[in-house]
Design a protein around this nucleic acid. Structure first.
Length: 943
DNA sequence: CTCCCACGGCTTTTT
DNA sequence: GCCGTGGGAG
């Protein structure tokens, strides 16, 4: 569904594409129109660079905007390299990913002080700010509303404060124009994050950007700077039009030592302005860098001439604010009169009816994916309906689809907290304190809990709930005054309850997807609990339930918007309903853009308190862009229109509200286009058997995910597809701390800097991070960490100079679209001159993670892809108990077999085949989610 | 036809 | 909190 691979592969490149591919020595700006084969060109260009003598994959860094785009580029580049160069050792060391991912990875490879840091997502950041409402600066910050300053309030304004903190760090802010106390609050906030060993999203970038400015001899930043100086020779930045000032600074920092820079983007598709991006970035690129070559990919291989010229005319509305270019159709889709429609309807229901009719009629219409391909009949998944606002406008269409049994998938805002099973979850915690958290609390009784769960449609019975209520009543009678600190009960109560009521995916009435969706929502709720518990672990237990419930009531619903489409890797053959934003980068044979109403598309600006009531407007240049302009809306409309390959219907029906009764100016603009008809024309008569475009979803697994997948596919599903979390453990982080300390020892050993016993205390202090342990336990853990490192140095210190790699990234690419990513703790040469792969393990304080021979051989396979040769040994080194270590010879047969096993696992994942173990076994015995899977009643399988 | 004012309603989302 | 709408005055 992404760029037209099929169209380009096997074909020659255009002159423009060829010149983009061949320009690898000068700074390059690739201006890529919609559908111009951008991803393919980038991949080919990367391949050309890798072909150059003396270039190692680690010399190349490529940034994408999202993880999804990264996976695609990764896969495309891997495929090309395999085809054109063959096996290329060390390919895993080429970085393709997001800027945030790069920042974190690189910091944690080269700056030991950050090894223990973890990243807070948006929800956790907000929880963190509220938890520390004064220390974070929140309640010491003032918003100036119509002249009079008003302090920000805990809970209520934390989201706003987060935005303020982000803008201050990400944008070019004139510090002289900021109030003094705001600058201090920002410093306090960053100190607070640092003190807790956290990065928020922004601080990852901010930290690396600041360090990259330093001198190569700097004691802290030096290693990082030298790494960049000595390794990075080619930097590629995709979606450059969406880059904001701090990201630009990262690019500067990475190219500071002369690396080649190539940026790729389309100024007409700048749609993330609320994140601080500005079209001016790409417009001024050629002026900011010396000797820039510009290549414009203006041929659109995706769409017919009708769609292309309509798109082009929309882009031209922004004349003066865009790069001069003219998108032309490459003629890969034929335009027929009647393909493009602009229709008005009496009301939303009529509009929905027509869309539904049209889709049903068009099913089976012959469609050529490419000019030289045999036609296939259009199927459900070839249709997309793109809304400016799914949450506001998609209702009538969804109703119609349901009524007519048209399969559909909603991407966009479907709210987690509106799902009945999640509302039932919230009831659990309301019951624990006896009332709801609203301003006028409603009493919540046992009967209310039972009703909520019975009506959630999970197939539970009264008897199940009898058992479940016992869990709640036990928790309720717990004397919370006796506990000074939280004892991580929220998740435990949840899992215990689900276990007692015996929820099972298969018990959910309806078809299989209904059960999957329900479990997906329940799993997400587990994640919600984790987010809360992680931030509030050192709070009073007394009002824990109350605060959690307030969080559930007032904050969480805003954040957890989930899409049904995310369940599993398998894409269903269904009509896509999506926001325009989420459709970026996609294409469909037929696209509908309904609800073209005034004040909706283009959207009217939102009022209310915003970041610029806190930050003086004049301190940020072009601060207007955060709020979105009409030009931004036109770009968004351009994105919507250019998703269509052949059929496009832009439609209007009056909204119910006064402000949306009239049609949008965009709609009348489309009406005037000569390629567009304002009345439906007849479709071709011919129909073929509908055949969905076959898409192979890309599967990338981490080593630990693969470990679960090998061990028990259903456990994998519960954890990684549905999202059920382990309850937090007091000693959590200990094993990671040991790993980090050892990593520093080995990295220093590679630089010929040997750690000795006298350094151990300092080393442990730097890396120990056990946030959930109390003082006494922390002391104990510190002591055992010291003892373990002492023991390690005594037993292995002599061999440290034989360290070859520490935390070495590896990747096993077994087949098209199946990849395993991971790191090998240690690779060393033994006295016997053999190479050994070492995985560290700590039994004493961390959860036992048994590693079996299969898993060890995954590492061996990774080593092979890294170096092109085989390791001799694989070992598991037990840090607490040397006697429990294992060491074995790499088994050639297992090594060959492992790729097949990984591929099978990947295929199973793609086909959503993730069954339970056939009977109760050791894995079940250790599994903390077994209560969601089966009873331990004999050896029989629960349905 | 223009101006003024009261009132109603309120998007998108990545890391 | 702010913007768009539309009724009513001028």
């Amino acid at each position: 569904m992404s760029a037209p691979l099929a169209i380009i592969v096997g074909m020659d490149y255009t002159d423009a594409q060829r010149s983009a591919i061949a320009t690898v020595d000068d700074p390059l700006l690739i201006v890529a129109c919609a559908g111009s084969g951008k991803t393919q060109v980038i991949s080919q260009r990367i391949t050309e660079i890798l072909r150059k003598p003396g270039v190692h994959p680690r010399n190349i860094v490529a940034f994408t905007f999202t993880n999804k785009a990264a996976a695609e580029l990764q896969e495309r580049a891997n495929t090309l390299v395999a085809k054109e160069i063959g096996e290329l050792p060390g390919l895993a060391e080429m970085f393709i990913g997001t800027m945030h991912g790069y920042a974190l990875d690189t910091l944690q490879q080269h700056v030991p002080e950050t090894f223990k840091f973890s990243v807070l997502d948006e929800v956790q950041t907000r929880l963190f700010i509220d938890r520390n409402s004064s220390k974070s600066g929140l309640t010491r910050t003032y918003a100036r509303v119509q002249g009079s300053p008003k302090a920000l309030q805990r809970y209520k304004d934390s989201r706003l404060y987060m935005q303020v903190m982000n803008i201050l760090r990400e944008d070019d802010v004139d510090k002289d124009l900021l109030p003094e106390d705001l600058i201090e609050n920002l410093a306090d906030y960053r100190r607070l994050l640092f003190g807790h060993n956290y990065f928020d999203f922004t601080d990852q970038l901010k930290t690396i950007v600041d360090l990259l400015d330093e001198d190569p001899a700097d004691p802290i930043a030096g290693k990082l700077v030298r790494h960049v100086r000595d390794n990075i020779r080619y930097l590629v930045v995709d979606e450059y039009q969406d880059i904001n000032p701090i990201q630009e600074k990262l690019i500067r920092g990475l190219t500071r030592w002369g690396a080649n820079l190539c940026v790729v983007g389309d100024d007409d598709q700048t749609i993330y302005q609320w994140r601080g991006s500005a079209v001016s970035g790409i417009l001024g690129f050629a002026d900011r860098y010396n000797g820039v070559q510009t290549v414009t990919l203006d041929e659109n291989f995706r769409s017919s001439v009708g769609v292309v010229s309509l798109g082009q005319s929309i882009a031209e509305l922004n004349a003066g604010q865009r790069l001069p270019k003219k998108m032309v159709a490459a003629g890969h889709q034929k335009y027929d009169r009647g393909d493009l429609l602009a229709l008005s309807f009496e009301d939303a229901a009529a509009e929905a009816r027509w869309i539904c009719d049209r889709i049903t009629h068009m099913r089976g219409v012959p469609f050529h994916d490419a000019p030289d391909r045999d036609p296939r009949g259009l199927s459900w998944s070839d249709f997309a309906v793109l809304f400016r606002s799914v949450s506001n406008d998609a209702g009538p269409l969804v109703e119609e689809f349901k009524r007519r049994d048209v399969p559909y998938v909603i991407k966009g805002l479907t709210r987690l907290f509106e799902a009945p099973e999640v509302q039932a979850c919230v009831k659990l915690y309301e019951y624990l304190i006896g009332q709801s958290a609203e301003r006028n609390p409603q009493p919540v009784t046992a009967q209310d809990v039972r009703d909520a769960w019975l009506s959630a449609g999970l197939g539970l019975t009264d008897a199940d709930l009898d058992a479940g209520m016992k869990v709640l009543d036990r928790a309720r009678t717990l004397d919370r005054r006796r506990y000074r600190r939280i004892t991580f009960t929220l998740q435990q109560i949840y899992v215990d309850f689900l276990t007692e009521v015996r929820v099972r995916e298969e018990r959910v009435p309806g078809d299989r997807t209904r059960g999957e969706l329900a479990f997906y929502n329940l799993g997400k709720f587990s994640k919600v609990i984790t987010a809360f518990e992680q931030i509030n672990y050192k709070s009073n237990f007394r009002d824990l339930y109350e605060r959690f419930l307030k969080f559930l009531t007032y904050q969480a619903p805003d954040y957890y918007a989930e899409s049904d489409a995310d369940v599993g890797y398998a894409t269903p053959d269904a009509v896509i309903i999506s926001t325009v934003h989420q459709a970026k980068g996609m294409q469909w044979p037929a696209v509908f853009v309904p609800a073209m109403r005034r004040n909706r598309f283009p959207a009217s600006r939102q009022g209310g308190l915003n970041a610029f009531h806190v930050i003086p407007e004049e301190a940020v240049s072009d601060s207007d862009r955060y709020r979105g302009t009409e030009a931004d809306e036109r770009r968004l409309f351009y994105v919507a229109v250019t998703r269509a390959q052949k059929y496009l219907a832009v439609t209007f029906s009056p909204g119910e509200k006064a402000r949306s009764r009239r049609s949008s100016d965009f709609f009348s603009f489309v009406t005037r286009n000569p390629y567009v008809l304002t009345a439906e024309a007849s479709l071709p008569e011919e129909r073929l058997e509908p055949r969905a475009r076959h898409e192979i979803p890309e599967v990338t697994m981490s080593f630990s995910e693969l470990k679960y997948l090998f061990e028990c596919p259903y456990q994998f599903k519960l954890r990684f597809l549905y999202g059920f979390d382990h309850p937090i453990h007091e000693e959590l982080g200990y094993g990671k701390s040991l790993h980090d300390a050892l990593a520093e020892i080995h990295k220093r050993a590679i630089d010929r800097d040997l750690v000795d016993l006298s350094d151990v205390d300092e080393l442990v202090d730097r890396h120990l991070n056990v946030p959930f342990a109390g003082d006494e336990l922390t002391r104990q853990l510190r002591n055992s960490a010291r003892a373990a490192i002492h023991r390690y140095l005594r037993e292995n210190g002599a061999g440290l100079l034989n360290t070859l790699h520490s935390e070495q990234p590896i990747r096993v690419h077994v087949a098209a679209g199946v990849t395993v990513d991971g790191r090998i703790d240690l690779i060393k040469r033994l006295d016997t001159n053999e190479t050994s792969i070492v995985d560290f393990k700590s039994t004493q304080r961390a959860q036992t993670e048994d590693i079996n021979r299969d898993q060890l051989h995954v590492y061996a396979a990774g080593y092979r892809e890294l170096t092109g040769s085989n390791a001799d040994l694989v070992e598991v080194l037990n840090l607490d108990d040397s006697a429990a270590s294992q060491r074995e010879v790499v088994n050639e047969e297992l090594l060959l077999g492992i790729r097949g096993k990984i591929q099978n696992a990947g295929d199973a994942l793609r086909e959503n085949r993730l069954p339970r173990k056939s009977s109760w076994c050791d894995t079940c015995e250790r599994c903390d989610l077994v209560g969601l899977c089966r009873d331990n009643s004999g050896a029989t399988v629960t349905p």
